[in-house]
């Protein structure tokens, strides 16, 4: 069996080994190296790059904690926006469904820079959003969205929400409509049927969506680079700057390792939380 299966899989697996696994390990190794004057990397086994970040309260507050907060906020907003949309799309069919899916997927396929351009036109001082808000008397003075945290969050939601819709849709479409019908037949109200049947069964999709979008938001560098300012130093952006502008590859590597580790810890925390939530619901039913 292995002799039949391995040859066709080999090229792809070798490519992943050579160009994903190996470089990732190399990042870990580089994170323990030293940088000498002139941006030369010297092989060493030092924790300096880690302590430089983790021992600096400015970095901890304005980069690490800031990225976690922004990622959590943007993920939460994405989920709230995406859930009703996924429920609605799940019950459409034919052309309407195709159009909705195409619109949901458009931001995923159209490049980030292209989309950011549209948002710049909307966001800038005398731009559409401010004109609209002032005309509607929501506020009187133009508000800053560009080069500001508000713009960053809006853009992260814009990119993240479609992923949540798609992964929720996966879960919702697996739910048998007979379950809902059965619940209704034995006298559950529509609302009860939703909370007791549909909502718990969408947990896996919700969790999958949150995992994807949180990781995406937490490591984002292009959005804060294009829309943010010096107050939106998300960790992905710092990695980008240290690697490409300051040529400090050991420090950038250490930051990447920290980024992946923190991301994994937060996702594990969420897994425990979601596990509890689902178990609690089962308890209640019993």
């Amino acid at each position: 069996m292995i002799r039949r299966v391995l040859p066709p899989l080999a090229p792809a697996l070798i490519a992943l080994l050579v160009f994903v696994a190996f470089p990732m390990l190399w990042v870990v190794r580089t994170s323990f190296n030293e940088l000498e004057a002139g941006a030369y990397i010297v092989d060493a086994l030092t924790l300096d790059n880690y302590t430089r970040f983790l021992g600096d309260s400015w970095y901890l507050i304005n980069t690490l904690w800031f990225s976690i907060r922004i990622a959590l906020i943007a993920t939460a907003i994405s989920v709230v926006c995406a859930y009703p949309v996924a429920l609605y799309i799940a019950r459409t069919a034919g052309l309407q469904r195709n159009i909705l899916l195409a619109l949901i997927m458009a931001p995923l396929l159209i490049g980030l820079v292209t989309l950011v351009y549209g948002w710049i036109v909307i966001f800038r001082g005398g731009g559409l959003l401010n004109s609209l808000m002032i005309a509607l008397h929501v506020y009187d003075q133009p508000v800053r969205y560009m080069w500001d945290i508000k713009g960053v969050v809006i853009l992260l939601v814009y990119i993240g929400a479609p992923y949540v819709v798609l992964s929720l849709l996966d879960s919702i479409e697996r739910i048998s409509p007979f379950l809902v019908e059965a619940a209704r037949n034995v006298g559950a109200s529509r609302w009860t049927a939703f909370w007791k049947i549909v909502f718990p069964l969408t947990m896996p999709g919700l969790y999958a969506g949150i995992v994807i979008v949180f990781a995406l938001n937490f490591s984002a560098f292009a959005v804060p680079l294009m829309i943010g300012d010096s107050n939106t130093q998300m960790i992905g952006l710092v990695v980008y700057r240290e690697a490409l502008l300051n040529n400090d590859l050991p420090f950038a590597s250490a930051l990447s390792v920290i980024m992946v580790a923190v991301n994994a810890m937060i996702l594990m925390g969420m897994a425990v939380f979601f596990g509890r939530l689902i178990l609690n619901r089962l308890e209640v039913k019993r």
Partner: peptide, 30 residues
């Protein structure tokens, strides 16, 4: 297709708003 018979109007409105949000920057650019 799945038939959950709750909150159709509200869901439709939210979906409409969300689609506007998604399409708006694209339309503005064009």
């Amino acid at each position: 297709m799945i038939r959950f018979d709750f909150g159709t109007a509200a869901l439709r409105l939210i979906t409409l708003l969300m689609m506007t949000f998604l399409v708006f920057p694209i339309a503005v650019t064009l």
